[in-house]
Lab assay of single mutants.
Amino acid sequence: TPAEQLLSKCPWKEYKSDSGKPYYYNSQTKESRWAKPKELEDLEGYQNTIV
């Protein structure tokens, strides 16, 4: 779907730490963070409005 294509192009991906806590990693900037990036939230919100 178009929304899945947008998400696949987003540099932010969700991973799980050893303790199972989700964290987010940007493959372009090599940045990681615990809080979900706004860019990823926006894309997921867009995906939910299409489905």
Rank of each mutant, 00 (worst) to 15 (best):
T1E: 00
T1Q: 03
P2S: 15
P2I: 15
A3H: 15
A3G: 09
A3C: 02
A3K: 15
A3Y: 12
A3Q: 15
A3N: 15
E4G: 07
E4F: 02
E4I: 05
E4Q: 02
E4D: 12
Q5Y: 02
Q5H: 11
Q5E: 12
Q5N: 14
Q5F: 10
Q5S: 15
L6S: 15
L6V: 15
L6G: 15
L6D: 15
L6W: 07
L6H: 05
L6F: 10
L6N: 10
L7H: 14
L7E: 13
L7I: 13
S8T: 11
S8L: 06
S8D: 14
S8A: 14
S8Q: 07
K9I: 07
C10E: 03
C10F: 10
P11H: 10
P11V: 06
P11N: 02
P11M: 12
P11Y: 13
W12I: 07
W12M: 03
W12V: 06
K13D: 06
K13M: 13
E14P: 02
E14A: 09
E14D: 00
E14V: 03
Y15I: 13
Y15L: 11
Y15Q: 09
Y15E: 12
Y15K: 10
Y15V: 14
Y15D: 02
K16S: 07
K16D: 00
K16C: 00
S17L: 05
S17C: 02
S17T: 12
S17H: 08
S17V: 02
S17A: 07
S17Y: 04
D18L: 11
D18T: 10
S19D: 08
S19Q: 13
S19H: 04
G20N: 01
G20E: 03
G20Y: 01
G20Q: 02
K21I: 15
K21T: 08
K21W: 02
K21H: 05
P22T: 11
P22A: 09
P22H: 07
P22L: 12
P22Y: 07
Y23W: 10
Y23Q: 03
Y23T: 03
Y24R: 01
Y24L: 01
Y25V: 09
Y25S: 04
Y25D: 00
N26W: 01
S27W: 02
S27T: 12
Q28P: 00
Q28T: 08
Q28V: 13
Q28R: 09
Q28H: 08
Q28N: 15
T29I: 01
T29H: 09
T29N: 07
T29V: 01
K30P: 05
K30F: 04
K30T: 04
K30M: 02
E31T: 00
E31A: 04
S32D: 02
S32H: 11
S32C: 06
S32N: 04
R33W: 05
R33I: 05
W34V: 15
W34M: 14
W34N: 14
W34K: 14
A35N: 13
A35I: 11
A35K: 14
A35V: 14
A35G: 07
K36E: 02
P37A: 05
P37M: 01
P37K: 01
K38V: 08
K38C: 06
E39A: 08
E39I: 02
E39R: 02
E39Q: 14
E39F: 00
E39S: 10
L40A: 06
L40F: 12
L40N: 11
E41A: 07
E41R: 10
E41C: 05
E41G: 07
E41M: 10
E41V: 10
D42Q: 15
D42F: 14
D42G: 06
D42E: 08
D42V: 07
L43E: 14
L43F: 12
L43W: 15
L43A: 11
L43N: 09
E44K: 09
E44N: 07
E44C: 06
E44W: 04
G45T: 12
G45K: 15
G45S: 13
Y46N: 01
Y46R: 12
Y46S: 14
Q47H: 05
Q47S: 05
Q47N: 07
N48M: 01
N48S: 08
N48E: 12
N48F: 01
T49D: 13
T49W: 05
T49R: 14
T49L: 06
T49H: 08
I50S: 14
I50V: 15
I50H: 14
V51R: 15
V51C: 07
V51I: 11
